[in-house]
Amino acid sequence: MTSTYQLGDEHLPSPFKSADTASLRGQALYVRATKLRLSFAVLAAVLAAMTFQVSDTWDLAGLCVALAFLATLLTEVWLLVAKPERAWYDGRAFAESIKTLSWRYAVAAQPFSLQSSESENERHFIAEVSKIISEAPSDSIAVTAPVHITERMREIRRSPLSVRRNAYLECRIEDQLKWYAGKADFNRSRAGRWRVTLIVIEGAGITAAILKAGGAIPFDLPGIMAALLGAGSAWFAVRQYESLGRAYSFAANDLSIVHARLQSIDSDNDWEREAADAEEAISREHTMWRASRGAS
């Protein structure tokens, strides 16, 4: 299927770019800080199993354990104060809200009907975007450019239904379908790998405990394995591979049904309603994602 026009992220209004950038930055910071916090916790357990006596009083390994715990504490405090996950979730919600409004306008889906005047539709679009901006947290999302309807959005809207339908199916539905399907495969694969990894760590912990009980190893290897298991389990919980894999599979299946239904529409009245329903389905999947992350 080939469409005359492509409506990529670069063709969306500038507030989308601001929110998308804020979300990606928040995600990167949150993931990086979580990795650091868990790594420092494991490092503390490793150092605690060792002894580096530098005098009759001081144990260098013990001091390093204290420093590792301090680094863990500082990272945790930074996460609590900076809340990068909030910028991640709120930024993504903001960006997706702008994107769905832009697609609704570009392909003439409700509430931007072709039966209404263009000036009325433009005022409605700008008002809706302005409402989203006003509700966005100013400490995590900064919109520095004015709200406007891009020329590519206008070009698609002025096109015949067949062109709008093809553009929507190819650049919106098929794009989202491929993204959800790819993410479903990725998360299922990672879930399986992490399950195996945790089982291996648990088995190694049992072996280490038996060896320690028999005096075969002089240091606290079981404690190190327990710390590794705790960190691995925490990371597995943070990434939510299994639940996301199921959610993305459901979304991909839902979008495949939407795609099939939209292909046969040949009247503007039906299109306005069905395309709006498709955007509701996409928005619903994102709302479920935010709920799974604990975002309000």
Score class of each variant (00 low, 15 high):
residue 223 G to Y: 09
residue 198 L to S: 08
residue 137 P to Y: 10
residue 89 Y to M: 08
residue 279 E to F: 13
residue 37 R to V: 15
residue 177 L to V: 02
residue 166 N to V: 00
residue 8 G to N: 09
residue 101 L to Q: 12
residue 143 V to Q: 00
residue 159 S to F: 06
residue 256 S to E: 15
residue 28 A to K: 15
residue 129 V to P: 07
residue 230 G to P: 00
residue 160 P to W: 01
residue 256 S to K: 14
residue 122 E to T: 13
residue 179 W to S: 02
residue 120 E to H: 11
residue 79 L to S: 05
residue 112 F to Q: 04
residue 262 L to G: 02
residue 44 A to Y: 06
residue 270 D to K: 10
residue 73 L to V: 04
residue 106 A to T: 06
residue 251 A to L: 06
residue 291 A to L: 12
residue 8 G to W: 07
residue 296 S to K: 08
residue 116 S to Y: 13
residue 151 E to A: 03
residue 121 N to F: 04
residue 229 L to W: 04
residue 231 A to T: 09
residue 99 K to L: 13
residue 32 R to F: 14
residue 255 L to C: 09
residue 245 G to C: 10
residue 243 S to Y: 02
residue 128 E to P: 01
residue 197 T to K: 09
residue 66 A to C: 11
residue 280 E to L: 15
residue 270 D to G: 06
residue 224 I to C: 07
residue 8 G to P: 08
residue 245 G to A: 12
residue 147 V to G: 03
residue 271 W to Q: 08
residue 41 A to M: 13
residue 84 P to I: 03
residue 220 D to L: 01
residue 175 D to H: 01
residue 108 A to F: 09
residue 9 D to F: 12
residue 227 A to N: 01
residue 195 R to M: 11
residue 52 F to I: 14
residue 31 V to C: 06
residue 46 V to S: 03
residue 275 A to F: 14
residue 44 A to H: 03
residue 115 Q to V: 12
residue 1 M to V: 09
residue 282 I to F: 12
residue 4 T to P: 03
residue 187 N to K: 02
residue 149 I to F: 06
residue 175 D to V: 03
residue 114 L to N: 13
residue 125 F to Q: 00
residue 5 Y to Q: 04
residue 54 V to H: 08
residue 205 G to I: 01
residue 33 A to Q: 13
residue 92 R to N: 12
residue 68 A to D: 07
residue 142 A to E: 11
residue 164 R to C: 07
residue 150 T to M: 02
residue 255 L to D: 09
residue 265 I to Y: 08
residue 32 R to K: 15
residue 215 G to L: 09
residue 48 A to I: 05
residue 172 R to C: 15
residue 217 I to A: 04
residue 240 Q to N: 11
residue 13 P to G: 06
residue 235 W to K: 12
residue 260 A to W: 11
residue 37 R to C: 13
residue 156 I to A: 00
residue 63 L to K: 05
residue 241 Y to C: 02
residue 125 F to A: 04
residue 75 T to C: 13
residue 171 C to H: 15
residue 94 F to K: 00
residue 95 A to I: 02
residue 2 T to I: 06
residue 159 S to P: 05
residue 282 I to P: 03
residue 124 H to N: 04
residue 276 A to W: 14
residue 240 Q to Y: 06
residue 123 R to P: 03
residue 240 Q to L: 09
residue 51 T to V: 13
residue 245 G to P: 13
residue 138 S to R: 05
residue 94 F to L: 01
residue 243 S to H: 01
residue 221 L to P: 08
residue 185 D to L: 07
residue 12 L to R: 11
residue 110 Q to W: 12
residue 293 R to K: 13
residue 106 A to N: 03
residue 73 L to F: 11
residue 263 Q to L: 15
residue 154 R to P: 10
residue 202 E to I: 09
residue 6 Q to S: 12
residue 253 N to A: 08
residue 32 R to L: 14
residue 265 I to L: 05
residue 196 V to N: 10
residue 254 D to I: 00
residue 204 A to T: 08
residue 75 T to L: 04
residue 52 F to E: 00
residue 284 R to Q: 07
residue 178 K to E: 12
residue 250 F to T: 08
residue 226 A to S: 07
residue 55 S to T: 15
residue 103 W to I: 01
residue 120 E to I: 06
residue 88 W to D: 07
residue 252 A to S: 14
residue 212 K to Q: 14
residue 85 E to F: 00
residue 94 F to P: 00
residue 286 H to D: 14
residue 40 F to Y: 15
residue 217 I to E: 00
residue 66 A to P: 05
residue 286 H to F: 15
residue 218 P to L: 05
